[in-house]
Simulated assay, not measured.
Amino acid sequence: MPAPLARALSIFGHPMLVLPMAVLAIALARGDRRTAVWSALGFGAFAALVMGFSWWQVRRGRWGHVDASARHERSTLNRFLLAALTAGALLVAWRGTLPLLALGLALSAFMILGAMLMARWCKLSLHLAFVVFAALLLHRVGTLWMVVALVFAIAIAWSRLALERHTHRDLLAGALVGAVAGFAFWPIAARWGG
């Protein structure tokens, strides 16, 4: 039973699911349906872009699987994600209509950069980084939401260990990078008037 549960948790804790869900929860809690709709469309397009890139790498024989587990696969994916998230943040900021989304994308790029910079020492868990980031974003929706999300982060950490995808050091690095991004988000947003 632990392996199927760990796989299910790992899937539900994927960065392409947890961050969009947090953004949607925040937008809907603020009564901002427009942001919720545009964010959902944007995240859907981004997910399609990333999956298309991953599928293309497999199709060309450069990757063994779309999950990019091998070191060279992960390095390629992280470079792609850094460029895509940075471009997305700049595009959204340039349009000027969704400053909080631009900030979230920029901090997501920061987390990817953190993973790249730490690659020599650990395989930073982006699953855990994004779950912790999302949990801290949810503080504005309510403390209970944040606590539930942090408990979910603990479950994600367990799943990554159970699946032997990460070590304790990888998880600690991911949690720290996610916490830095999460604790930075609302103070920066307040300075921008978000």
Rank of each mutant, 00 (worst) to 15 (best):
H14K: 05
R7V: 03
A29K: 14
W63N: 13
E164P: 06
L103E: 00
A109I: 06
V131N: 07
L28K: 02
T76N: 10
L144V: 15
D32Y: 12
A179T: 15
W121N: 01
R71I: 14
P15R: 12
W186V: 03
F130Y: 14
R120A: 10
G174V: 07
W158K: 13
F12H: 05
S159M: 10
L28M: 08
L91T: 12
A47K: 03
L101I: 14
G52C: 11
P2N: 11
A149T: 07
R33Q: 05
T86L: 14
L107G: 05
H65S: 15
M116F: 01
A27D: 09
A84N: 08
M118L: 15
S159L: 09
T35C: 05
L9R: 09
A155G: 15
W56E: 12
W56S: 14
V50I: 11
L98M: 14
F183T: 09
L172F: 10
R33Y: 12
G61K: 14
R169G: 03
V141S: 09
L113A: 11
S159E: 01
A83E: 00
H127N: 03
W145M: 11
Q57D: 00
A119Q: 13
L126S: 09
A173T: 05
G44F: 12
A153P: 13
F152V: 04
G96V: 06
L128H: 05
V131C: 13
V147T: 10
E73G: 12
A153Q: 08
L128F: 08
M111V: 02
A173Y: 02
S75Q: 14
P99M: 05
G193Q: 01
A68P: 05
G13D: 00
V148I: 15
L19F: 07
V92T: 13
R59G: 02
A8R: 13
F53W: 12
F133I: 02
V148H: 02
C122G: 03
G31P: 13
A119S: 15
W94P: 15
I188L: 14
L81V: 08
G13S: 10
R62D: 00
M146T: 08
A190F: 00
L105S: 02
P4F: 09
H166T: 07
S159V: 03
A109N: 06
G44L: 13
R165D: 10
L5K: 04
A45K: 06
T167C: 10
V148D: 00
W145I: 06
S125Y: 09
N78I: 02
